[in-house]
Design a protein around this nucleic acid. Structure first.
Lengths: 268, 268
DNA sequence: CGAGAAATACTCAGTCCGAGAACAACGGAG
DNA sequence: CTCCGTTGTTCTCGGACTGAGTATTTCTCG
C-alpha cells in the first residue's frame, strides 16, 4: 500500500527548486532567561540599539541563520552571545522551547515569526551588551500577585513587540514546571540546602511555604535530591542551625509532584 | 530611564527596509489531528502527491501565508482544508500549538521550520484529499505500550520528514493533557456518559481504569462535567443499566487532576 | 550571655486513593 | 419469557498523603 518516494523525480525536483518562490517570513529566536539574584527572580532584558522599537526593552534574541542551525542551536548561540558565558557555565543552564509567536503585525518591518525559548540559570555574572543591544541588564520580575495582574507588566517596563506576552507565558510555564520537574535546582549552585531550594519555590510561586512540610516532601520524592553528607559552613543569616547539603538527583520528573498551594483555578 | 522608541528614525528605517536581505527560511504548519473512531485512537495522515517524499505518508499541513495570517489562523485553515469540515463543526475542535521543529536538514529542499499543532476532534466524517495530498485517511494509533516503543512508529507507517517525532511528541502531550484538563470531552459528542468518557481515557492512556473510582473522581472535580438530568436510551451493548448523561462543565483545569496509574517514571 | 530565628523531626486529624464489594438494571442466549 | 453475565453506580475500608501545628536543637546577633 505504501508507495516509496520517487527518488528520480525527487532529484530532478530538487535541482530546479527555487527557494525564493516561497513566502518570505523571517524567523527569530527570543529567550526568556530567568535567574535568581539575591533571592529575587530576574529576567534578562536588552535595550534595543536599532529600530524598530529603538530604545525599548526587549527579550534577547536574534535571527536564525538559515540552513546553518536548528532552533535549539540558534537559541543556545543567542544565549551565549547575550550573556557572555563560557560554554562550561552554559552547560548548567536549562534551555527549552516555549512556543512560537507569529501574528503578522507583531513586527512592523515584515512578517517575523519568533520561536521563544525559556532558560533557567543559576546566578550569572552581569551580562555584556552585544549585537544590536545597547545594554543588557538583569531586571527583577514581580511575583504572580505583584505586578503582572494589573495594567502593568511583570517587569514594570514596557517591552517591544509582543514580548510582554511571551514573558507572561514564560512565567506561567516556569511556575508550572517547578511542580513536576526538579528544575528548581538549576537556579542554584551544584550543592545546595533544602531551605535554599525552598526559597526558589517561594520566590517563583510568590508565596511562603511551610518549611517542615516542604522538607518532608522534597526528601520523600525519589531522585529529587541526594545527600552529600556535608553540612553548611554557617547557619542562616539570622540564626539557626547549619543545614545539610544536597545535590540534584537523577529524577527528570517529580513523582509525586510538589503542587502549589490552593489556587481556586478550576474555572476561568 | 526607559528611552522611548525613536519614531522618526523608525519611519525612515521602514521605508528603506528590504525584506529580501533576511535569511530565507520557509515556514509551515503541520497538524496532528486526533480523533476516536469506533473507540480507537486515530490520527489524520495524507499521502504526499508531490516531492519530496512523494508517496510517503505525512501529517497534514502547509505553508504559512506570509503577511496574511498568524500561526493559529494558518493551522485552523489547514485543518479546515484537509478535513473538509464546516466552520460549525470545527468550532468543537480543540486546537493548540505543540512546538516548532527546525533542524536544517529536516526538509531536503531548503531550511523549512514547521510549527506543529495538536487537534482533538470528536468523531469526524471521512476526510477528503486536497492540495498536495493524494489521499487523506484516518489511521489507527497504537497505544503507549503497543507500537511506539520499538523500532516501529506509533502508526506502523513510515512518515515523511520528522513527522514520526512530531507525532510521538503529540501523543505524549495528549496523554499528559488528559490528566489536568477536561479536554477528553472534546473527543465526544456534546452529551456523553461517564463510561464513554472513561473509554477516552482508557484508549489514549492505553490501560483499563477502575470504573468505580473513575466515576467518583470525575464527579468530584468541580466543573468537569454537569448533569443533563437525562438518561441514555439503552444500556451498554453487552448489558447493564442505562447511564446518566452529562455535558462538559466550565472548568479549564482539573483540580485535583486525574493522574495516570503508576508509571515508575521518576528516573530516566 | 540571652533572645530570637531557623533546620529538622514529629504528631495528629482530615482527606484522598486504590481495591473491592454490593446492588440494581439491562441485553442476549436459549 | 427466563436466566445469566455484564455493567452503571454507590459504598466501604485500610493505607497513604497533606496541611497545620509543635518540639527540639543549634545557630547568629546584639
Amino acid at each position: 500500500m505504501d508507495a516509496q518516494p520517487d527518488r528520480t523525480d525527487e532529484a530532478a525536483f530538487l535541482a530546479a527548486y527555487d527557494p525564493r518562490a516561497f513566502p518570505a517570513i523571517a524567523l527569530t529566536v527570543d529567550i526568556v532567561v530567568l535567574t535568581l539574584r539575591e533571592g529575587r527572580l530576574n529576567v534578562l532584558l536588552v535595550e534595543r540599539a536599532a529600530p524598530p522599537f529603538r530604545g525599548c526593552w526587549a527579550l534577547p534574541g536574534g535571527f536564525v541563520k538559515a540552513g546553518e542551525e536548528g532552533l535549539d542551536e540558534a537559541a543556545a548561540r543567542e544565549l551565549a552571545e547575550e550573556t557572555g558565558l563560557s560554554s562550561g557555565a552554559l552547560r548548567r543552564v536549562h534551555l527549552e522551547q516555549l512556543g512560537s509567536y507569529g501574528a503578522p503585525e507583531r513586527d512592523p518591518r515584515m512578517h517575523v515569526v519568533s520561536v521563544a525559548y525559556l532558560a533557567f540559570a543559576p546566578d550569572l555574572p552581569d551580562p555584556r551588551a552585544g549585537g544590536d543591544a545597547a545594554r543588557a541588564v538583569w531586571t527583577p520580575v514581580a511575583g504572580p500577585h505583584g505586578g503582572g495582574t494589573g495594567d502593568r507588566d511583570a517587569t514594570g517596563r514596557e517591552l517591544a513587540f509582543d514580548h510582554a506576552r511571551i514573558l507572561a507565558d514564560a512565567l506561567d510555564r516556569a511556575r508550572a514546571k517547578l511542580e513536576y520537574t526538579p528544575l528548581a535546582t538549576t537556579f542554584l549552585a551544584p550543592e545546595f540546602t533544602i531551605p535554599e531550594l525552598r526559597t526558589v519555590y517561594e520566590e517563583i510561586w510568590g508565596e511562603k511555604l511551610h518549611p517542615g512540610n516542604f522538607h518532608r516532601k522534597v526528601l520523600s520524592v525519589p531522585g529529587f535530591v541526594e545527600s552529600t553528607g556535608e553540612t553548611a559552613e554557617r547557619g542562616g543569616s539570622r540564626g539557626g542551625p547549619r543545614a545539610r547539603i544536597y545535590r540534584a538527583g537523577d529524577a527528570r520528573l517529580l513523582h509525586p509532584a510538589l503542587l502549589r498551594p490552593d489556587r481556586e483555578e478550576g474555572v476561568r
